[in-house]
Nucleic acid binder design. Structure first.
Lengths: 157, 157
DNA sequence: GGCATTGACTTTGATCATCGTAGTGACCTA
DNA sequence: TAGGTCACTACGATGATCAAAGTCAATGCC
């Protein structure tokens, strides 16, 4: 945190203050592309975030208004985190982050991003944001945007 | 730096490892939108980066292949930093960062971003990337992409 | 040629953040 | 009621960041 609040009124700087650290954007990725929703799921991310940093980042993202924390109704131990509309609005940013990052990472044959990047950008963003509004994500779960996009592509062919 | 090299092969993580800190993306903003090119210009950024951190980030961005360091031919004290093609490819990311950030910052009447966001995204990205290839930037300098876009918009009207 | 200045960094020492590991305590499950 | 799960906290060591001052070559000005 530190001097982070309001170094300037530049929009880019605002984005940097919200997502410009080693973990915040990865948490948003887990939430929005993989459909992770609980502390434990985020903890088990590929990049191995520690619990103290995770707790701090979730609190910050909540304070920033991009995610909400909701205690589970069925299990009082559990808490679910989900994206607000402001968080959903960051999906194009995440999309461009994934697109640019593809150029620096080995191409994997069956990476679903390969298929996604071949689709129309606007279609992808629409389906993705809609899926998140309905509790889904890009790749995670049965009602994933990816599944819907693939089905539509097949139908059009 | 630290454990930063290759936590995973996820493209989003690769982007985070390159730009995911408080300063790297702001340096790219200064370079690509404002047309700054020298150490001193970056130092005088609105957000007041310190010289040691700036030196470190410039070195990292160079190692990442998004910028190049070139000693000036006319003045042997000076060094100019400019974007590589890989850096130019990050322009859509910067565009989305600015777009998302607009929602968290007070709207300023004469902010050129307001005008840019009203234009066609594809046109803006094209003109912007072309301007950078020619040594310009989005807003900085006479041959700015912004000036060109405004002129074209006026001609079309 | 001398001298203040510019420009690109380094150095330094104090402060701050992050890391990994080990809890803690409420809660559910058998 | 014993054992596990879950969402965090606490902690000490390590690493990054900060502001301010300093280095040093190159330049502009007289």
């Amino acid at each position: 945190m530190k001097r982070a609040e309001g170094r300037s009124t530049c929009p880019t700087n605002f984005t940097v203050e919200t997502f410009g650290d080693s973990w915040s954007l990865l948490i948003m990725r887990d939430l929005l592309t993989l459909g992770k929703h609980t502390f434990g799921e985020f903890l088990r991310s590929e990049e191995r975030i520690g619990p103290s940093v995770l707790a701090d980042r979730l609190a910050r993202l909540e304070r920033s208004g991009v995610i909400v924390r909701t205690p589970s109704e069925t299990d009082a131990r559990k808490v679910t985190y989900s994206a607000t509309e402001r968080g959903i609005a960051a999906i194009p940013l995440l999309y461009e982050a994934a697109r640019w990052g593809r150029g620096g990472v080995p191409v994997e044959e069956d990476d679903p991003w390969e298929a996604v990047m071949a689709m129309d950008r606007h279609d992808v963003l629409d389906a993705w944001q809609q899926a998140v509004r309905e509790g889904g994500s890009l790749f995670g779960g049965a009602e994933s945007a990816f599944a819907r996009l693939i089905a539509r592509a097949r139908a059009d062919a």
